[in-house]
């Protein structure tokens, strides 16, 4: 029988945390989708050999500290303004690979104008959109993407569309814009889903460097703390409740 010591050799390595992701302890709650998406960003940037050319724009929300975890240059945007910040960085330094990393509140509520107009101008940036249907950082309030009937701390009896309007499928809106070349909805709850999501992310980054326009990758995600479930329960709840309303797949790929 082969021992663990005999297996643990560099030539037998099949998976490890990407080098670009540093050892700083992430502030995210256990099981949070952010961590997986961070890893994918780090992996794709690393595999493209773009470590020295990538600029990240972090949002206000749970990912506000994204800049502490991935070893590239970052700029922290005001709430919702990441696409405007990224627009300028990319236009002034076209050789850079520029992405925003935004939650649903940041992207689809306070930053709707910046998001839609950056996409409509066809800025050569990547927009990474974490949709967990809730405001995580502030403690679980209703988001523009909160599902009908879903309970949050500001719709404690469930989202009532008469009172709060309808959950916003912003990616579908963006897919209508001529400036957006690639709009896709992915998830990261299983190993096959993550592999697919990584491919999508890679394509988005490649589009941005090929000058094809704006690419938006939505990650339908979980928020165990906000949803008040375990991470395992959250994944199941997401598959059963989020996926029917936010179906996975490409919304546009030109």
């Amino acid at each position: 029988m082969i021992t663990a010591e005999e297996i643990i050799k560099p030539e037998n390595l099949v998976y490890t945390k990407p080098k670009l992701m540093n050892d700083t302890h992430m502030h995210y709650c256990p099981g949070c989708s952010h961590g997986v998406v961070h890893k994918l960003v780090a992996e794709v940037v690393e595999e493209m050999g773009m470590e020295e050319k990538t600029i990240g724009v972090s949002p206000v929300g749970c990912a506000v500290f994204a800049y502490n975890y991935i070893d590239i240059d970052w700029v922290e945007a005001a709430h919702g303004r990441a696409p405007a910040v990224a627009t300028a960085v990319k236009r002034l330094s076209p050789d850079k690979m520029v992405f925003t990393y935004q939650g649903d509140g940041d992207l689809a509520a306070i930053g709707t104008a910046e998001t839609i107009h950056a996409c409509n101008r066809g800025e050569n940036i990547v927009i990474i959109f974490i949709n967990n249907a809730i405001y995580g950082m502030t403690g679980g309030q209703m988001a523009p993407t909160t599902l009908e009937g879903m309970k949050t701390s500001t719709c404690p009896f469930g989202r009532d569309v008469k009172l709060n309007g309808y959950p916003l499928k912003i990616s579908n809106l963006i897919a209508q814009l001529d400036g957006a070349c690639y709009v896709t909805r992915q998830s990261v709850q299983t190993s096959p889903a993550i592999k697919k999501a990584k491919k999508a992310l890679r394509q988005a980054f490649e589009n941005s460097m090929a000058g094809k326009g704006t690419s938006l990758v939505e990650f339908v995600s979980t928020c165990s703390s906000g949803w008040k479930m375990t991470p395992v329960q959250s994944n199941k709840w997401m598959e059963e409740n989020m996926f029917p309303f936010y179906p996975l797949g490409d919304l546009k790929n030109e």
Binding site: A77, A84, V89, E114, H117
Partner: peptide
Amino acid sequence: MVVLQAESEVAAINMVYGGAGAGKKV
């Protein structure tokens, strides 16, 4: 030089923030 008509004053100043962060004269 880049000249851009933004969608709002809010977007414009945040573009300035991004450009200034890149060390550019904006």
